[in-house]
C-alpha cells in the first residue's frame, strides 16, 4: 500500500516546477458551504439552549457539536478524500476517549461514602486493649451498613 501512488496523483495537475502534484484539491465552494453550515449550527445550538428541554438539552447540544465536528473533519480536514487509515486513527482515538469516559463514569456513579466499614468487633476489642492510641483503633465499626 505504501507505493500505491495512484490515489494521490490521479487526475492532479502537475506543479509549476514539473513535480507531481500531491494531495486532493478541494473546491472552495465546498469549504464555504461547510463554514456556513457550521455557523448555522452554532445558531441552532444557541436556539436550543434558549428552550428548556430539561435533560435533553445536553444531548441536543452534544449532538449538534458532533455534527459540527464531523463537518470540520470531513471537509476542512479532507478526511472524505484522504486515506482511510487516517480516518481510522482519528475515529479510533475518539473511541478510546469514549471508553475511558464510560469506565470512569460507571465507576464514579457507584462510589460509596467509604470502603472501610470499620474494625470488626473482635479486632476492635484487641485494638482497644493493646493499641488504644493507634489511628486504626479510632475507626469504630460503622453500624447500619
Amino acid at each position: 500500500m505504501s507505493h500505491d501512488q495512484a490515489h494521490a496523483t490521479a487526475g492532479a495537475p502537475q506543479g509549476d516546477d514539473g513535480h507531481e502534484h500531491v494531495g486532493h484539491v478541494v473546491n472552495p465552494k465546498i469549504l464555504f458551504a461547510t463554514a456556513f453550515a457550521l455557523l448555522a449550527l452554532t445558531g441552532a445550538t444557541l436556539f436550543f439552549h434558549s428552550i428548556d428541554a430539561e435533560d435533553l438539552n445536553i444531548w441536543i447540544a452534544l449532538g449538534i457539536a458532533f455534527v459540527k465536528a464531523s463537518l470540520v473533519g470531513a471537509f476542512f480536514m479532507h478526511l472524505v478524500w484522504d486515506r482511510p487509515f487516517n480516518l481510522l486513527v482519528f475515529v479510533g482515538c475518539t473511541l478510546l476517549v469514549a471508553l475511558m469516559m464510560a469506565f470512569c463514569l460507571m465507576d464514579a456513579a457507584q462510589y460509596r461514602p467509604t470502603q472501610f466499614l470499620g474494625n470488626p468487633p473482635a479486632a476492635q476489642a484487641v485494638l482497644d486493649k493493646d493499641a488504644p492510641g493507634a489511628p486504626i483503633a479510632a475507626q469504630k465499626q460503622i453500624t447500619g451498613e
Binding site: F103, D107, Q110, Y111, R112
Partner: peptide, 18 residues
C-alpha cells in the same frame, strides 16, 4: 492493554462492578 487498567485498583475504592 487499554481495558485492564482497573486491576491495579481493586482495593482503591473502585466499585464492585468495575
Amino acid at each position: 492493554s487499554f481495558v485492564v487498567w482497573g486491576h491495579h485498583m481493586f482495593l482503591s475504592g473502585q466499585s464492585g462492578l468495575m
